[in-house]
Design a protein around this nucleic acid. Sequence first.
DNA 1: TCAACTAGTCAAGCTGATTGACCAAATAGT
DNA 2: ACTATTTGGTCAATCAGCTTGACTAGTTGA
Lengths: 147, 147
Amino acid sequence: MRDDLHDLPVLLLSAARALVDGIDSRVRAGGFTDLRPAHGFAFARLSGGGATVTDLAEHLEITKQAASQMAEELIRKGYVERRPHPTDARARLLVLTEKGHACTRAADEGAVETLAPLAATLTPAQAAALRTALAHLATPGRIRPIW
Amino acid sequence: MRDDLHDLPVLLLSAARALVDGIDSRVRAGGFTDLRPAHGFAFARLSGGGATVTDLAEHLEITKQAASQMAEELIRKGYVERRPHPTDARARLLVLTEKGHACTRAADEGAVETLAPLAATLTPAQAAALRTALAHLATPGRIRPIW
DNA sequence: TCAACTAGTCAAGCTGATTGACCAAATAGT
DNA sequence: ACTATTTGGTCAATCAGCTTGACTAGTTGA
């Protein structure tokens, strides 16, 4: 790697950490204190609509059992509810409640607020370069906890 | 946030995830199969030299007890060894063994390899902008697991 | 010198994940 | 159509990593 990028790994991990912390603190400030950052990755999948327990498990790369437990927890806390699956009587759809949507809005706001100082310093050309650079690494549609 | 950056949070998290995965697979390919990504953040602190259990706990933001257990595990697996502390008889220094250093080299290589396709597409000016942008978010010296 | 503090460990308990077993519904093969 | 296999989901037991709480040994400072 070129010398001018030797500390890029550290910067990238540190920036991602700061983003997660920023989102989490905004979510907590919104009153959603019974959630952890890991739940946000479940919400990211559920907000798309029409996710089953198995879908959730694949998205988070955890077992179906673990996804089922997480779904149960989110239902108990009022963020998610079950709907019958339209075509498969075995499956049940997990959908966000209004409370769940409100929480995802708070998370989005947290992300925007955290990244605002960064965004303000970038020219449109630099912003485009940043998006392109990160997109080179990113696997589309796969947002989930890091470890 | 400007429209051209609306998906930046997703890209940033996804890129960080890809980096962690890249490092982890390179470390495993190097034969260090008994480690998890979280251990890398401990190594990052220990490779600086002269870390006590308490230092490690603060770095990882976990309790001293958890840090002590992790140190015990890394010692048992041969990555770390204890040294007497030069000035404080209560404390003991944790230092990487040669095996530990070899593992961190593999991790560094994994990071470089993972970021190589990205680095290749950036002009020096874009690289500088990327570093500056990420540095706006990053808290210096704080690399640790994200959740 | 003695009270307060700090480094570290032992022990017990919690939580979020795992593996394994199982049922019900859907799908594929003949 | 009938059976065999696969798939969606849950129950139960267990494990790993982390927490809180209690404690010992060594250090610091009034």
